[in-house]
Design a protein around this nucleic acid. Structure first.
Length: 261
DNA sequence: ATGGTTGCATGGCAA
């Protein structure tokens, strides 16, 4: 099975690019973040026509919103609200064999990396802490966690560790929070399992840098993790880097895992 | 140090 995660940054605006992602990744399941549409406005029929009639959609007006799209039937799992907000940042699908697929859109956290000065940064840290507590009490065995986690944890996950160490997405306090979340289930970073450091890897390039791909100032914000019970099932990983250079691109690229389920 | 772009929705806000 091939599972793709992609922050699409508006599903309505990028249906053509979604079709191309499906074609080029040859995925069976695709997890989207930032669909930026309410359920009533979600292009369900168009996506069904692309071969993905089975859809778990948690939409939201203007912002956020996540979805899991599948070629084959899947049930919704225990999708959660976080930090007391109904802002649609999590959806769970149950794959064949009872494997839980968690799709997350973690808050970006604003510009100032200080939880006292910046409520958005406090929300981001609290969100990761709540995830950690929740997964500490939820260990069914075979789980996959994907999504835009909005944190690039390792030095080789950013274009310049030195220049970004005080930038939201790469600060030590965010990395500590993410490491605690990883430790609670001994999650395996599937991307780094196949492409270890020190190879530089990115999944996001800001729209504000128009020189892509020349300067290559990227960050690896999009992740695929599996629990130890699935580590031996991992078959491969692909980052569709070319997608950042398409016409009217998302600022994120799709990341795909192939796994024997 | 600053400003740079995009999407939603139509004024700023969020990223």
């Amino acid at each position: 099975m091939r599972i793709t995660t992609w922050n699409i940054n508006s599903v309505r605006l990028r249906l053509e690019q979604l079709a191309r992602v499906i074609e080029e990744t040859r995925c069976d399941v695709i997890c989207l973040q930032e669909i930026k549409a309410q359920n009533a406005d979600f292009p369900a029929d168009e996506i069904a026509a692309l071969g993905f009639p089975h859809q778990l959609v948690r939409g939201f007006k203007s912002y956020n919103g996540v979805a899991i799209l599948s070629r084959t039937p899947l049930e919704e799992g225990d999708s959660q609200d976080w930090c007391g907000k109904v802002d649609q940042r999590h959806v769970v699908g149950i794959l064949p064999g009872g494997v839980e697929l968690h799709n997350f859109y973690v808050p970006a956290g604003g510009d100032i990396p200080d939880p006292v000065e910046n409520d958005k940064f406090a929300h981001k840290l609290r969100f990761i802490t709540e995830m950690t507590s929740w997964f500490a009490n939820h260990k069914p065995g075979k789980q996959i966690l994907v999504g835009d986690l909005n944190i690039a944890p390792r030095e080789a996950d950013v274009w310049s560790h030195k220049q970004l160490v005080k930038a939201v997405s790469h600060t030590p306090v965010e990395v500590e929070h993410l490491d605690s979340l990883m430790d609670v289930q001994d999650w395996v970073d599937a991307v780094r399992h196949f492409i270890p450091e020190p190879e530089q890897l990115y999944s996001w390039w800001s729209y504000r840098n128009r020189t892509w791909p020349g300067s290559d100032r990227g960050r690896r914000l999009d992740h695929i993790w599996v629990t130890p019970a699935l580590k031996s099932a991992l078959l491969g990983i692909e980052l569709l880097r070319d997608a950042r250079g398409w016409k009217q691109p998302s600022d994120h690229i799709p990341v795909t895992v192939e796994i024997a389920l």
